[in-house]
């Protein structure tokens, strides 16, 4: 029997907010699905559309870019940059046929452990409904 589809999610989290949020989710023993791998970056503005598509090449099913809330980026405007770049990545994802919904941008503060867990859960639900990355691969 074919195993049910378990989405593979890659989350790029900024060091100062989203990653701390993820950490808090962990230390608070909040349950969130284990399908997510977190890559810590100093700021969400560090993420380039190229990183996102490199991940899609390996077969990742969904990508989360998570940074500080607007106005709270530790590098002042990194998250504004992230917003533009995620827009670019979504546009490319649409044309190439991967679909823009496989990319998500969220603002999560260091105190929002619960929100982090909820975002992940919701994203996994959405990707599960969408099905696997058509590229295949074993990420």
């Amino acid at each position: 029997m074919k195993a049910p589809f378990e989405p593979k999610i890659l989350a790029f989290c900024c060091n100062w907010c989203a990653y701390s949020g993820a950490d808090l989710a962990g230390t608070s023993r909040l349950q969130y699905p284990p399908n997510v791998k977190i890559v810590r970056v100093m700021c969400s503005g560090r993420i380039d559309p190229g990183h996102i598509f490199r991940a899609f090449e390996t077969g990742v099913d969904g990508i989360l870019v998570a940074g500080c809330h607007p106005g709270e980026c530790h590098y002042i405007s990194g998250n504004e940059r992230a917003e533009e770049r995620v827009e670019t990545a979504k546009a490319v994802a649409e044309i190439i046929g991967i679909g823009k919904d496989r990319i998500r941008l969220e603002w999560i503060s260091a105190s929002e452990g619960l929100r982090f867990a909820e975002v992940i859960e919701d994203f996994i639900k959405e990707i599960r409904a969408k099905g696997p990355n058509p590229v295949g691969g074993d990420a």
Binding site: D48, G50, E57
Partner: peptide, 9 residues
């Protein structure tokens, strides 16, 4: 350049 996005595509 461009973090390799064009090559990925």
């Amino acid at each position: 350049s461009h973090a390799g996005i064009l090559h990925s595509m």
